[in-house]
Amino acid sequence: MDLLIFALTIGIVYSLLALSIVFSFRILGFPDLTPDGTLLVGASVGAITLNHTNSVVLALVSASIVGAFFGIITALLHNKLKISKLLSGILVMTMLYSVSLRVMGTSNISLINSKSIWFTDFSKSSQIYNLIIAIIIISIIFFLLYLLLKTNIGLRLRALGDSENTAKNLNLNIEKLNVIGLAISNGLAGLAGIIIALYQGFVDISMGTGLVIIGLASIIIGEIILKPNNIFYLLLAGIIGMIIYQSVISIALRLGLPSTDLKIATVMLTILFIFIERIRKSKLTMDRQIGNRNI
């Protein structure tokens, strides 16, 4: 039972990042690698703010703002200098390593004695409270995003994600939409950074590395399970996928898989999901004799 609670909690905590990645990759159609960096910079700015002002709210706000700010920079690099989407993200992400080091002034900050949004004592009930807190946080973010995507601006963002050409023909201001979209997704990544840091009790300079890839893998898993056909399920797919991803790690460790082999296990899991999906789809198409649709 403990294990279930923990796996759910950590899955939900990390699914904030998954939402950020769903937003940029899937909704906005912008393969943005910046979150690796914005998550880290959010965590470091948040930690510094927390240690100076002793205010959790300020820490959360500052982390989101800093994340959004660097998201905007990625968008501007792409918009103004016509740097490709991938490269703009990589450039900013790389830069943020130095920025975070500068911000922290060191490579590792302990938050064990700081205020937190989590229950930091170790009783069984506080584990459950933490799970509830995680669910509340993710629900709020989820519905805010969902409502946002129903507004005028949200519809424009989705139109841009569906097809850039259509968006152009509709006379949408693509550059502006990129800025707005990346500000939101990276603001979310920054927020995820400080929340994760508070959860694990420290900020370390290596904490962002590779997280976008993990996020992508979970989205793929989530999408295969939920088969989203609207925005609600698309966002949900990110969350479910991340919970499954983290749960599988928990179970694998619990069953005694050496952590050395963990990376190959998670990759295999992702490939397995895609493989099952492929077979299922090809069967469907054979059954219906539609011919070879390319999915």
């Binding site: 950590i10 990390y14 694990q200 290596s206 050395t260």
Partner: peptide, 10 residues
């Protein structure tokens, strides 16, 4: 494997 989130899980 130098992975902070994994260290937490472990």
């Amino acid at each position: 494997n130098a992975d902070v989130s994994l260290a937490t899980q472990i």
